[in-house]
């Protein structure tokens, strides 16, 4: 009886320890994003090869990125973005970003695997998610700022938005370079190849679904025909 209790307590202790460790690692990987965006060359190298990042943190950044997009549409002052709220579909807005993002990661993985890229899919995904951090940080701030400035003062706002995007693109470039251990030229070439690959993936998916719907349509119409004849 007593031993059982002790083991149980020990188990919970181990669990609590594990949770605590996970949390501390999660926090440190989150904090590591600040290092990555300011020291991209070191940061991405360690992210991919020294296991300094975590999937949980990457997921968090992706979620925050999508959240930022939605908040930007809803909360930016109408002087800068006037989204037709009555026509907006949040799922459409989020998935129109999430799906291209994932497809591009997948295409990049598929292409670089063939040409001695060092990165696994997980590494690419984590690196790309970490590259989104400046977007989240700046644009979230800009949502607040947009409500404090007027239309005439908008150039500051626009410059900051542009800056966040440029920073992100730069980070993504460096991230891919470090993850795959590529030269800059090779990375640039593979960026183009990735886009082509993503197009191929989308094409295949479209073909698959159109064939699927054709097939389904065939059986549905056959069923209808039979029902129609029988009655």
């Amino acid at each position: 009886m007593r031993t059982a209790q002790f083991t149980k307590q020990a188990e919970t202790n181990v669990k609590a320890e594990k949770r605590k460790a996970w949390w501390s690692r999660y926090k440190s990987t989150l904090r590591y994003a600040l290092h990555v965006i300011t020291h991209p060359f070191d940061g991405f190298w360690d992210l991919a090869h020294e296991n300094k990042g975590s999937l949980a943190a990457a997921n968090t950044f992706l979620f925050l990125f999508l959240l930022t997009r939605v908040l930007k549409l809803m909360c930016t002052s109408f002087q800068f973005i006037s989204a037709p709220v009555q026509h907006i579909n949040l799922f459409e807005e989020t998935f129109s970003l999430l799906i291209p993002f994932l497809v591009l990661c997948l295409a990049n993985w598929a292409m670089t695997t063939l040409f001695d890229g060092k990165g696994r899919f997980k590494d690419i995904y984590i690196a790309m998610c970490y590259a989104l951090v400046p977007y989240v940080m700046i644009q979230l701030l800009m949502i607040v700022v947009s409500n404090m400035i007027t239309f005439e003062e908008g150039s500051f706002y626009n410059v900051m938005l542009g800056f966040s995007v440029v920073w992100c693109v730069f980070l993504a470039f460096v991230g891919l370079m470090q993850v795959h251990d590529y030269s800059p030229l090779k990375t640039a070439i593979f960026l183009i190849v990735t886009v082509v690959g993503a197009c191929v993936i989308l094409f295949l998916v479209l073909v698959f679904f159109s064939l699927l719907s054709d097939a389904a349509g065939y059986f549905i119409s056959m069923y209808r025909e039979i029902v129609y004849r029988l009655y």
């Binding site: 109408f78 404090m148 239309f151």
Partner: peptide
């Protein structure tokens, strides 16, 4: 009314 110019004018004074 979605009037940016006038909104900006009013907002500046309000701020």
């Amino acid at each position: 009314a979605h009037d940016r110019q006038n909104y900006g004018r009013a907002f500046k004074l309000y701020r």
